[in-house]
Amino acid sequence: MTQTPGRRERKKAATRQALSEAALRLFLERGFDQVTVAQVAEAADTAVTTLFAHFPGGKEALVLGDGAERAAALTAAVRERGPGVSILDALQAFLATRGPYEPNLSPEFRRRTDLVVRTPALRAHARTLWTGNEALLAEVIAGEAGRPAGDLSVRVLARYVLEVPDLAALEPDPRRALETAFDHLRRGWPGF
């Protein structure tokens, strides 16, 4: 049985949403680098301290979050893959539903994705969010593949997988670039 969030949780969620929406609107209108956190807070009718309470990662986190959802979804893609689905197939399928790889993005999400891809600070933050999961992904891959924890080959594979989003996003056809990258990974790590 799930509990309905209390008033306090609903207010926090509404504030987070208002901040995120105000930030995206301002970033799209003026450009990411031309907007301050004070302007975002003002547009959302909150204080700067409130903004940082909800988004301690600052401006980049307003668009990309803190990475917790990303880490959970990434590990779930490996752990919860179907029978007979390889680790690399599961990771490719997972990435194919994200950002510039998803062919059926809503117009709002497409604008957000384009903003991230064309803004160096956001791209760098997105890359940091991905690569920050290296140890976690390596641990999950090792466990699923029956490899020892800390296996260098698994750590290298995890690092390469997590670099793919940044590399492929800049290509003229990001989805095709994603496929190409995973074709190379499969050749280097057969059986994964």
Rank of each mutant, 00 (worst) to 15 (best):
residue 39 Q to W: 01
residue 87 I to H: 06
residue 25 R to N: 02
residue 176 R to W: 03
residue 159 R to S: 13
residue 87 I to C: 07
residue 50 T to G: 09
residue 81 R to I: 04
residue 140 V to D: 09
residue 132 G to K: 13
residue 140 V to W: 04
residue 23 A to H: 04
residue 118 R to C: 09
residue 91 L to C: 05
residue 21 E to W: 00
residue 149 A to M: 04
residue 139 E to D: 14
residue 118 R to V: 12
residue 6 G to T: 11
residue 122 L to N: 06
residue 103 P to H: 07
residue 113 T to P: 13
residue 185 L to Y: 04
residue 88 L to R: 13
residue 51 L to G: 05
residue 74 L to P: 12
residue 12 K to C: 07
residue 187 R to G: 07
residue 184 H to S: 09
residue 116 V to K: 12
residue 56 P to G: 06
residue 9 E to N: 10
residue 53 A to L: 10
residue 103 P to N: 11
residue 55 F to K: 03
residue 122 L to E: 08
residue 114 D to N: 14
residue 131 T to L: 14
residue 175 R to A: 15
residue 25 R to K: 06
residue 117 V to M: 07
residue 188 G to M: 11
residue 49 T to S: 15
residue 74 L to W: 01
residue 12 K to L: 12
residue 67 G to V: 05
residue 124 A to W: 01
residue 53 A to G: 15
residue 181 A to P: 07
residue 61 A to V: 00
residue 17 Q to A: 06
residue 167 L to V: 14
residue 73 A to S: 10
residue 29 E to M: 01
residue 29 E to Q: 10
residue 100 P to M: 12
residue 16 R to L: 02
residue 11 K to R: 15
residue 149 A to V: 05
residue 182 F to T: 02
residue 97 T to D: 13
residue 55 F to G: 01
residue 88 L to A: 06
residue 110 R to Q: 12
residue 14 A to C: 02
residue 32 F to K: 10
